[in-house]
Amino acid sequence: MESASRGGEGVLDGFARRAIALRGAGKTVYVAGSGPAVVVMPEMPGISPDVVRFAGWVRDAGFTVYLPSLFGVDGAYPTVELGEAVIGRVCVSEEFRAFAGGGSSPVAAWLRALARLAHEECGGPGVGAIGLCFTGNFALTMTLEPAVLAAVLNHPSLPLDDPSGLELSPEDAAAIRRRFDRDDLTALAYRFDNDKWCTGRRFAAYARLLGDRFDGRVLPGACANPEPPPFFRDTVATPHSVVTAHLVDEENHPTVRARDEILAFLRTRLLPA
């Protein structure tokens, strides 16, 4: 992955840049905070300033954030040109399964190994996993790692060509359901009601898989930030990123309440009483 200096000067200040090799592959991971670990995965087209802002909120809530660089230019402002170039590369990458029929993305195995490492380094009851957009479903797949106790799926967009798909192999789907029942887990999820990339059909599919263990929450699209960065305005072209690009940072705003609900969910699962 490209360094933060190529994207936005100072955006990732306060995060330690680490090179972490797992399962024969090395990636850059930005780490900050103290307390139980939470893996915050970037949304398309990468670790934008809005993703860093959200990761900072998680850190400040009492957690150690592990922010892996999976695609794009770290710290970059999400322009149309950058976003479309990154999408083109990622959709043909062997690490990702962007389209229906591909099953679970191989990168999820690396992310599970990262969660295991983070738990070893930080201790506590377990690890949280937060996916955003392109990585939304990875938070669910990561629960195949026993250390992951809290999964948050924000507007999961894969597979891109199947609104009711889950980007899971049948074997992984069955194993995830067993894990949720055995360990009394819940998946927390968010989307806007008029999001064309994460529709009600996708949330219905999650509910069929997990039953009452899927807590899907829907916000009115009318409350989304009307002036997101150009990539979200022109390419995404729909209310989509609940806690990043389309968040309105105002007290008691629905998107801020969603952020606070996520932080409360993490505290309940990961911070001892």
Rank of each mutant, 00 (worst) to 15 (best):
S3L: 14
A4G: 07
G7A: 09
G10T: 02
F15M: 00
R17F: 02
R23Y: 04
G24K: 04
K27F: 14
K27E: 12
T28F: 09
G33S: 03
G35L: 11
V38M: 01
M41Q: 12
M41G: 02
P42G: 08
M44N: 12
P45K: 12
G46H: 08
G56W: 01
W57G: 10
A61G: 01
T64W: 00
V65D: 00
Y66G: 01
P68L: 08
S69H: 03
L70M: 11
D74V: 09
G75D: 03
G75K: 02
V80I: 14
E81A: 15
G83I: 05
R89L: 15
C91R: 14
G101V: 04
S104P: 02
V107D: 05
A113T: 07
L117S: 09
E120P: 00
E121Y: 02
P125M: 07
A129P: 07
G136Q: 07
G136N: 05
F138E: 11
F138W: 15
T141K: 14
L153G: 09
P156R: 09
S157G: 05
L160G: 06
P170F: 08
D172R: 04
A174W: 02
I176A: 15
R178I: 11
D181S: 14
D184L: 15
D184E: 15
Y190P: 01
R191Q: 10
R191P: 08
R191T: 12
T199M: 07
A207S: 12
R213C: 09
V218I: 13
P230K: 10
A237E: 06
T238Q: 04
S241T: 02
V243H: 07
H253L: 04
V256A: 13
R259D: 03
E261D: 15
F265L: 02
T268A: 15
